[in-house]
Design a protein around this nucleic acid. Structure first.
Length: 506
RNA sequence: GGCGCGUUGGUCAAUCGGCUAAGACGCCUCCCUUUCACGGAGGAAUGACGGGUUCGACUCCCGUACGUGCUACCA
C-alpha cells in the first residue's frame, strides 16, 4: 500500500471554526498514526469570498494547536503550489479532457437565464429545479446548440462554464470509512459546474484534480459534502483515475448546544463562548469574534476536547497527550451522528490540564494576564501564588480573578457576610492581634496564626468567629486559599493595613 | 419538494445478539474544608416509535416519526 497522504483543504474566508479544527486534527492524527504525510492546501478558488489574512490565520491556528503540516503554501513541498489560485491553469486541460470524452459540456447560460429556469420550473413538488438531464436540453449549451453555433460562441469569447454531464439511472456505490456503504442515483444529481466563467475551477473539479496530483490516499471532510460525493466519484472515473481514488470519510457535524443545527459563530456570540480557535477580526467589518486561545484555553486541552467530540477509544480514558491520540486514533471509531458542543465540558478539560501542568509553565502562562493588570511580579513569587490557587482556576485569566489580592490591596470589601455578627469583642480581638503583630520581626505562615490563636481565648472567641472576618479583610470576599497562607505572602505591613482598612468600615 | 445522512440520560458517550444499559460533564445530597475551590462518598436521569428476524434485540432487517445536511458560476 502506498504511503498515507491526507490533506486539510480550507477556504480562506474567515476564522477557523471548531469543526474545522477537528477536521484538521483527525487528518493529522490519521496521518501520524500511519506514518503518512499531512498536507495543507488552500482552496481559494472563489475570488469573491477571499478574505485578506484568513490564510495566515489558519496557519497560525494549526501552529497553536501543534498540528503542523508536512507540506503547505508556506513550507512548500513536492506538489507545490499548494494554493489553488496558483494552480489555476492546471485545471483547464482536465476540463477539456472531460469535454472531449463527452462527460462534460460548455454552457453559455447567463445568471438571468438560470434564474428564469429555476423560477419558471418551480412547482410545489419541485421547489428547487436543477440544471440536469431533465432540463439541460432546454438550456444554452454545447449539448443543445448546433456545433457550429457553439464554435462561434467560443470563438467570439462569449463567457461559458463547463458542466459535468451526469448520467441517467446509474446507481453509484461507495464505501465511506465511517458510514459504510452509501448509494446515490445519478439521475437525481445535477450537472455541477466544474469550471467557472472566470476560468477558476469549482471545488468539485479542483478537489479531484488536486487530490489526484497530490497523491492523496484518504480524504476527510464534513458531512455536508456527502451529497456531492457522486460528482467527485464520477470525475475520478471519467478522468481515468478510478484506481487512485482516495478512501472517503465524511465527518459528523458539530452542533449547537441548544436546539439543533450546525454550530455557527453566531451561536457562540449568543451563548457566550468562542467558536473560533483564536480571535478573528474580519478586515472588512472590523468585527472581532472571540477564540479559545484568547479566552485562556491551553492548546493541548482544546485539542483533547475536540478529539473526544465525535471520537473515543472505547475505554474510559478521556485525557490524552498528542502522542497517545496519535497512537490510539482510528477513523472507524469516529461517530456517525453529530455532537452538540458543550462549553462546560470544554472548560472541564482545561481545568484538568491546568491541574496537570507544572507550576513553572503555568507561571509563564499566567504572567501576561497579571502584568496586563499593571502588576510587576517576579517569576519566583508568582509561582508560589500559582501553586496556591491553581486548584480553582479553569481558564488562564482566572489566575488574576483568583489571585488579585496577592498583588493589589482590595478596594472593595464584601462585609455583608460578617456585618451582622460584628461586635466590640471582635473589634478588640483584631486590634490586639495587630498590636501583637507589630511587635514581631519574624514573618511566615505560622507566626501570625500562633498569635491569632493565642488571642482567641483572652477575648473569649472561637476561631470560627473571626476567621471569616479576617478573610474578608485580606481578600475582599469569601474565596481564596488559606488565610494565613495569604498573610504570609502579602507580608506583615500589608496584612496590618488590610485589617485596619476593614476595621474602619465596621 | 427531492435526495443523502443521522437518532442510547440535559450533554459527550460505552455496548459490535445475553443488560441488573459503563464512564465523563452538568445537576442534587452528604463528607472533607471554620471561605471558595480541589478531593471523597452517594443520588436523580437514557435505548424516538411500530413491526419483523431470533431462545433472546439497544444491538440485525423493514417501515414511520423526528432531526440535520445538500439541492449556487460558495466551499
Amino acid at each position: 500500500m502506498s504511503k498515507v497522504r491526507v490533506r486539510f483543504a480550507p477556504s480562506p474566508t474567515g476564522g477557523l471554526h471548531l469543526g474545522g479544527v477537528r477536521t484538521v486534527l483527525y487528518n493529522y492524527l490519521f496521518a501520524r498514526h500511519h506514518g503518512g504525510d499531512f498536507i495543507l492546501r488552500i482552496e481559494d478558488t472563489d475570488q469573491n469570498r477571499y478574505v485578506e489574512g484568513a490564510e495566515q490565520y489558519i496557519v497560525d491556528c494549526l501552529q497553536w494547536c501543534g498540528l503542523t503540516p508536512d507540506e503547505s503554501p508556506q513550507k512548500g513541498g513536492p506538489h507545490a503550489p499548494y494554493r489553488q489560485s496558483e494552480r489555476k491553469n492546471l485545471y483547464h486541460q482536465y476540463a477539456k479532457q472531460l469535454i472531449d470524452s463527452g462527460h462534460a459540456y460548455y454552457a453559455f447560460d447567463t445568471t438571468e437565464e438560470l434564474e428564469k429556469m429555476r423560477h419558471d420550473l418551480k412547482r410545489p413538488d419541485n421547489t428547487n429545479p436543477q440544471y440536469d438531464h431533465t432540463t439541460r436540453m432546454h438550456m444554452r449549451n454545447s449539448l443543445s446548440l448546433d456545433p457550429h453555433d457553439v464554435n462561434e460562441l467560443l470563438a467570439n469569447g462569449i463567457p461559458y462554464v463547463v458542466r459535468i454531464k451526469m448520467p441517467e439511472n446509474v446507481t453509484l456505490l461507495f464505501t465511506d470509512m465511517i458510514r459504510g456503504e452509501i448509494s446515490f442515483d445519478t439521475s437525481l444529481v445535477d450537472d455541477k459546474v466544474l469550471l467557472k466563467a472566470d476560468g477558476m475551477p469549482t471545488y468539485h473539479l479542483a478537489v479531484v484534480v488536486d487530490d489526484y496530483l497530490m497523491k492523496i490516499t484518504h480524504a476527510f471532510r464534513g458531512e455536508e459534502w456527502l451529497p456531492s460525493a457522486p460528482v467527485h466519484i464520477l470525475l475520478w472515473e471519467y478522468l481515468g483515475w478510478k484506481h487512485h481514488m482516495p478512501q472517503w470519510a465524511h465527518l459528523p457535524l458539530i452542533l449547537k448546544p441548544d436546539g439543533n443545527g450546525k454550530l455557527s459563530k453566531r451561536d457562540g456570540d449568543r451563548l457566550g463562548f468562542p467558536v473560533f480557535a483564536m480571535n478573528w477580526t474580519d478586515p472588512r467589518t472590523n468585527e472581532t469574534t472571540s477564540g479559545f486561545r484568547e479566552m485562556g484555553f491551553l492548546p493541548q486541552a482544546f485539542v483533547n476536547m475536540l478529539a473526544m467530540l465525535g471520537w473515543n477509544p472505547g475505554t474510559e480514558q478521556e485525557l490524552f497527550s498528542m502522542d497517545e491520540l496519535i497512537h490510539k486514533f482510528s477513523i472507524e471509531r469516529v461517530h456517525k451522528g453529530g455532537a452538540k458542543f458543550d462549553f462546560e465540558k470544554a472548560k472541564w478539560f482545561n481545568h484538568q490540564y491546568i491541574q496537570h501542568t507544572d507550576d513553572a509553565t503555568l507561571t509563564q502562562l499566567a504572567k501576561p494576564y497579571i502584568e496586563a493588570q499593571g502588576v510587576k511580579v517576579s517569576d519566583d513569587h508568582l509561582q508560589k501564588i500559582v501553586a496556591l490557587i491553581k486548584d480553582r482556576c479553569t481558564l488562564i485569566p482566572d489566575f488574576w480573578q483568583q489571585g488579585h489580592f496577592f498583588f493589589t490591596t482590595p478596594q472593595n470589601f464584601d462585609i455583608s457576610p460578617i456585618k451582622e455578627k460584628w461586635n466590640d469583642q471582635k473589634k478588640a480581638f483584631f486590634t490586639s492581634w495587630i498590636n501583637s503583630l507589630n511587635e514581631i520581626t519574624e514573618w511566615n505562615q505560622e507566626i501570625p496564626e500562633q498569635h491569632f490563636n493565642k488571642l482567641l481565648e483572652t477575648n473569649g472567641l472561637k476561631k470560627g468567629d473571626v476567621l471569616l472576618p479576617l478573610r474578608i479583610m485580606l481578600v475582599g470576599g469569601k474565596y481564596g486559599p488559606g488565610v494565613f497562607h495569604i498573610a504570609d505572602m502579602i507580608g506583615k505591613q500589608e496584612t496590618i493595613l488590610r485589617v485596619n482598612n476593614v476595621l474602619s468600615q465596621l
